[in-house]
Amino acid sequence: METLRGPQFTMNDGNTLVTEVVSDDDSHLCLYVLLQDMLKIGDLVVGFDIEWGFKGSSTSGSGSRSGRNTEHHSQSDKSELLTRKVEHHIAVLSFCTRLGCVLIRLAPNHISPSLKRFFSIKDIMFVGVHIKEDLQRLRSVHDLVVRNAVDLSDLAAKIYDQPRFLVYNARELACKIASLRVDPKPLNVLWSNWFENTLSPEQIESATIDAYATYRIGKKLMESGSSSVKRLFL
């Protein structure tokens, strides 16, 4: 049976995860491997996280010119405007299951059919922290609908009657809910551009930790047995 390939990271609870990084267009096999393993063991909870990046483009405000006119204006027209537009896009989708993690790198304004099909499987529960706006962006920009998603911030606050959980990030919430102690995200990763040509080892490890944290929180809440546990469809 196929399995994930990539670097291995040992989490603070002793579990070791394999993380595979693929482009969206090449994600079909990884998603198939995740799905087959989930069905085999009967665990359909997927830790879900998103990393954002930025793309810039330069545009001239005066239009194109040719011939001698171009040379004349390039030397004398000091008022010509050059505008650099920076746009933020979802750059990486992170999935974590018992098997491991898959980081899927997206191109701006493009989602593959394989990824859309994976998100549309109603039996999979995608769990994440503060994911409402991310899912709205996926819906509005990519026309991608996640059939079954749970915002763990809301769910944890309801179950434990702790409104402060609403502002915790994934690592903080994992510490409180699942006793998973994780260091804060390094600043060099926090401020990095996830559209770089190659993800750094630090970026891959950080994305793995965040996705694993959401998986652990989700499993803890789903298996609590509390009558207060309800799916929060987004």
Rank of each mutant, 00 (worst) to 15 (best):
S153T: 00
Y168R: 01
T214D: 07
I104Q: 00
N15T: 14
K85R: 09
S57Y: 07
A149R: 05
F119P: 03
D24F: 02
V18R: 05
H72D: 04
G63D: 15
S64M: 03
N69P: 06
L81E: 15
E2I: 14
G53D: 08
F95T: 02
S62V: 07
H28N: 01
L115T: 12
Y32N: 10
F48S: 09
T83K: 11
L115H: 01
V86W: 08
K85P: 04
R84V: 14
A149F: 04
G100Q: 03
E20W: 00
K122I: 12
V46K: 08
G225Y: 03
V141P: 01
R68M: 03
G128A: 12
L4I: 06
D77G: 05
G6Y: 03
E172K: 01
K176G: 00
S228Q: 13
P7K: 14
Q8D: 04
Q203I: 05
Q203K: 10
P108Q: 08
S206N: 10
G100H: 03
F119H: 06
E172A: 04
R137Y: 15
S79R: 15
R105L: 02
I124K: 05
W191R: 03
S23N: 11
G225E: 13
F95N: 01
S153L: 02
N197D: 14
Q8F: 11
L199K: 08
K132A: 03
L35E: 07
P108T: 14
R98G: 06
W191H: 11
L190N: 07
C101P: 09
V129P: 01
L234Q: 05
I217F: 04
P113A: 05
D210A: 01
E20C: 10
P7Q: 11
D134M: 08
P108A: 14
G218F: 12
P186Y: 08
E202Q: 13
T214Q: 02
S60N: 14
G53I: 07
S66K: 15
L180K: 04
W194P: 01
V86M: 13
L99K: 08
F9D: 06
K78D: 06
V189I: 15
G53N: 05
G128E: 05
L115M: 12
G61W: 09
I177L: 07
L234F: 10
T16V: 14
M11D: 09
L4H: 02
H72R: 14
V46R: 06
G218K: 04
R117Q: 10
S74G: 09
D154N: 10
T97H: 04
S228K: 15
L17N: 02
Y160Q: 03
K230L: 07
S76M: 07
P113D: 06
L180T: 02
M125F: 13
H72E: 06
C101S: 08
D143S: 11
R5W: 09
K55Y: 02
P184A: 02
H89E: 08
N109S: 12
R117P: 05
L82R: 13
A213K: 00
V167P: 00
L39H: 09
G61A: 11
T3R: 14
R117S: 15
K220P: 09
V46Y: 03
G14H: 10
F126T: 02
N15F: 15
K219R: 15
Q8C: 12
S192T: 11
T16L: 13
E223N: 10
T208H: 09
P7S: 07
I121G: 01
L17M: 15
M125R: 13
S200A: 07
D210T: 08
D134A: 04
W52L: 10
V92W: 00
T198G: 03
S227G: 09
